[in-house]
């Protein structure tokens, strides 16, 4: 088998097909959820709901991650809190601010942007891999997570872990032939893209629903979001 052929298939037709399934699948899920209907809420709010929603995002994205010690969830389980946070931050840095990925975006969107130097992205990648291992172990031993975790949750972790690991090894030109790693990287990304609409990794879309609802509800009740 010629790895170059596999690679061009994985980053060519398969990637495009996967992307299509990803977009169509996510759109379907969005439309289906929205289509279930939204009944009007007649409760008179105690505080401004717009402000509540804004605060809900500000706190979730900009405040809690930087002052985690005020959260009880952090004091009770700091490693998991940090691992979860670092994983998401790392993912953002790698996918948006990494040069290689920016070029993929550029080929899809038609425009690019300034990226971070490779060593910085590289450190984030390493940290993200460690964070994933920590989250993996936690899922194995935490009694609540044991109860909540089924095949789908393990596959979620696996499907994100493989592209992450192969990407990291690739940039360091370690162990395997470059084409082999690149092929596996692309194949696993394709699988991941196809998998997302069928899994809870899709939470990045529904986050904007639940977080808005959170801000709105808490404002309605007159409580800080």
């Amino acid at each position: 088998m010629n790895w170059n052929d596999v690679l061009s298939f994985a980053r060519g037709p398969l990637f495009q097909a996967a992307l299509l399934i990803f977009i169509a699948g996510m759109l379907y899920r969005l439309v289906r959820v929205i289509g279930l209907g939204w009944s009007r809420n007649h409760v008179r709010p105690k505080k401004s709901q717009t402000k509540g929603v804004v605060m809900s995002y500000l706190k979730g994205i900009l405040i809690w991650p930087f002052v985690p010690w005020v959260k009880n969830t952090f004091t009770k389980n700091p490693i998991i809190y940090l691992a979860g946070g670092l994983f998401h931050l790392g993912l953002f840095v790698i996918l948006v601010l990494g040069t290689a990925h920016m070029l993929v975006w550029k080929s899809l969107l038609g425009f690019g942007w300034k990226t971070l130097p490779l060593p910085i992205v590289d450190w984030f990648a390493a940290a993200t891999i460690v964070a994933m291992v920590v989250l993996f172990i936690n899922r194995l031993i935490n009694p609540v997570l044991k109860l909540l975790t089924g095949t789908a949750e393990w596959l979620n972790l696996l499907f994100v872990f493989v592209p992450m690991l192969t990407g990291y090894i690739m940039t360091h030109h370690l162990f395997f032939q470059y084409e082999v790693l690149f092929s596996i990287h692309m194949l696993s990304v394709d699988f991941l893209l196809i998998w997302i609409p069928f899994s809870r990794i899709s939470h990045f879309v529904f986050y904007f629903f639940s977080k808005s609802i959170h801000g709105q509800e808490f404002a309605k009740h007159g409580v800080r979001a």
Binding site: I34, W38, R200, H203, S210
Partner: peptide
Amino acid sequence: GGWAASQLEACTRC
């Protein structure tokens, strides 16, 4: 409805 469904979908089982 959408209100409950979107939140059930958002849960990551963390």
